Amino acid sequence: MIPMRMARVLIAGLVMLLVGTGWAAALQYGDYGTYYTAGKVWYYLYLNQNSTFTELYEKALDAGVDNETLALALELQANSTELFNEAISVGTPDEGRIPMPWKVRKAYLMIKEAVGILAEALE
């Protein structure tokens, strides 16, 4: 009978081997479909929310929303823009390149929060 500790080591080794083989196969055959799709989806979602932010910000200025709310929304938008620019530094879907999905997603979530703050202030 195999001791429990040795069994765990064997299972961990097998898992590492299988994961490594799968990753190597993906690299060999250029299987970046999911990665590319995720980057592309978050990229376009960000652009959509950014244009919504611009519209809502102008409405908020006209409606006389307090400066503290406007400043918070602008700070979130500025941070999201910085992240977005980092993400697309490697390229955009329009160029046939893959932006960094994790950064684009984070930028999208920030701009979405900013849009939510402005929408709530306008209600």
Rank of each mutant, 00 (worst) to 15 (best):
I88H: 08
A87W: 09
E75L: 03
A38V: 14
I111H: 00
P93A: 11
L45E: 14
V15P: 02
N48Y: 15
P93D: 12
A121Q: 05
G96D: 13
T54L: 07
V104F: 09
L74S: 08
N50A: 13
W42N: 10
A60R: 09
T21F: 05
K106M: 04
V9Y: 01
D66Y: 12
Y36T: 13
G30C: 07
V41R: 13
L83C: 04
W42C: 08
I117D: 00
A107N: 06
Q77C: 02
A63G: 07
L109M: 06
K59Y: 08
E75W: 00
V104T: 13
G13D: 08
P101Q: 12
I98Q: 06
L45N: 14
N85H: 11
A60Q: 10
T52G: 00
G96C: 09
Y43W: 14
E75N: 09
V9E: 10
G116C: 00
N67C: 03
T69P: 03
E120G: 01
E86H: 12
A63T: 07
P93L: 11
V15M: 05
W102M: 14
P93Y: 10
F53H: 00
A78V: 15
A24C: 06
L76V: 08
L45G: 10
M16H: 01
Y35P: 02
V41Q: 15
T54F: 05
E123Y: 01
T52P: 00
R97W: 01
D62W: 04
V9T: 03
